[in-house]
Nucleic acid binder design. Structure first.
Lengths: 243, 243
DNA sequence: TCCACATGTCACGAAGCCGTAACACAAGCG
DNA sequence: CGCTTGTGTTACGGCTTCGTGACATGTGGA
């Protein structure tokens, strides 16, 4: 009942499309073929794939235009795109990257390389959205319903803050650097100031209210979600030096 | 002023070189740009970088030749090389890896990916600080969660003290001189008074509390972490000397 | 169009950390 | 004992890091 990653293949040449689809199926992917931009758009309206294999040369709208459009649409923005291009046109490649493609594949390519690239993208982009439900103490996050509750009470958490919280709660007790958070929450393809993470942490803490005690700052390292928040009262025999 | 890892950027295209340098600087690296193999060689004769970013296509000697030469030279042999290649030429990549490149990056690439690759290389090459979890008696250090516990009780340890403790616990029973500690904890090219180590040891002992018994001073040599601390009449803790 | 919300960045201040000097204490040696 | 060397301890100025409020921009909906 395990379903493989969905791959939308946008390719007008039937022979190539078939070749790709067969190889994808063979490796456990679920390919859906669209012969042009319009068909691809219809497919995207139905269900979002895990990755898009986009041919550069297409009848009607070009792959470049499509990539640009999908990157502009908030719904499809985060779907990684693997561009298929004819061999050797550097300017094309740069334009494609600008349009938001995650990687390129030069035709002709070996099926093995294609599969490797797709797996690399999936590994990079979606290491694990696996955990749908996370709990830490009385704090509960449900990715399916996109809800956060603390002691049964619903909390209002913004989109970015939700992603951060999701990641932190999926990997509790572990310290995550700002760089790691940027990579995992925002994605590797953006360049954001590390300091911005701090601001979102502040917003997350405000949203969490009392539950913010579970969110700890590790000075000089990063942030951490913990089930056992530090208490001010010192329980052990620590030799505490007073200045 | 904290100094980051040195990166020698061998790239003839000024625009690309500048882009790379800016991004490296932004992330705390110290980039040095060389426009061709000769300039790179001059730079290498001066000071060895922590990693070399080597463009494949260069005026004069190609990146492949340079990589091969540097790999043959005992002085530069161990400097990791990250190769920059034009997209899509598989044979080139293989040849590059044969020549001794540690990894390659396909142009065009995102700054974030470049930084991630560099960090990955440095991490891979980095010494044995790798051990995530260390135990000595009831004292446990976990680098992943950045936590130190003694008999189950969490201890509050500052950043530098944590690094010292991590190193000592990764190499227990062994005496480490102040110089060695400075090299391993602070970095090889930092000018710090050796006496400073003593002060951090003091802070570390305060943070460790009773567990400080495992941290021994070897007079005239350095410090050591031991599983079998010497038993003293006064209980082996922090005997407070009146001052 | 206006409005509400989200987001990324900056400036400023507070808190914590660091390296060093200076002094106190301990250990070795004659 | 007195001297020398090595280490423990404390205080402090300077610096880094973090939290916080404010602001400009972008985005989507009424």
């Amino acid at each position: 009942m395990k379903r493989g990653p969905r791959v939308l293949v946008v390719e007008d040449e039937p022979a190539i499309a078939e070749l790709i689809a067969v190889n994808l199926k063979h490796d456990g992917f679920l390919p859906v073929v669209a012969e042009d931009g319009a068909a691809a758009q219809r497919e995207l309206n139905e269900v979002l794939p895990d990755v898009i294999l986009l041919d550069w040369m297409l009848p009607g709208e070009s792959g470049l235009m499509l990539a640009r459009r999908w990157r502009a649409d908030s719904r499809t923005r985060n779907v990684p795109i693997l561009m298929l291009t004819a061999r050797g046109d550097e300017p094309d490649k740069i334009a494609g990257l600008d349009a938001g493609a995650d990687d390129y594949l030069t035709k002709p390519f070996s099926p093995r390389e294609m599969l490797a690239r797709i797996r690399a993208i999936l590994r990079r982009r979606a290491p694990e959205q696996a955990r749908e439900r996370c709990e830490i103490g009385d704090l509960v996050l449900d990715a399916g319903t996109h809800r956060v509750t603390f002691q049964g009470q619903a909390l209002k958490v913004g989109p970015t803050e939700f992603k951060i919280l999701h990641f932190l709660m999926a990997h509790p007790e572990r310290v995550h650097s700002r760089t790691q958070l940027l990579d995992r929450v925002w994605g590797d393809h953006v360049f954001i100031e590390e300091r911005t993470v701090d601001v979102h942490m502040r917003r997350l803490r405000l949203a969490l209210g009392a539950a913010a005690a579970h969110l700890e700052t590790v000075r000089g390292v990063g942030y951490r979600m913990t089930a056992t928040p530090e208490v001010t009262a010192d329980g052990g025999g620590l030799a505490q030096q007073t200045g």
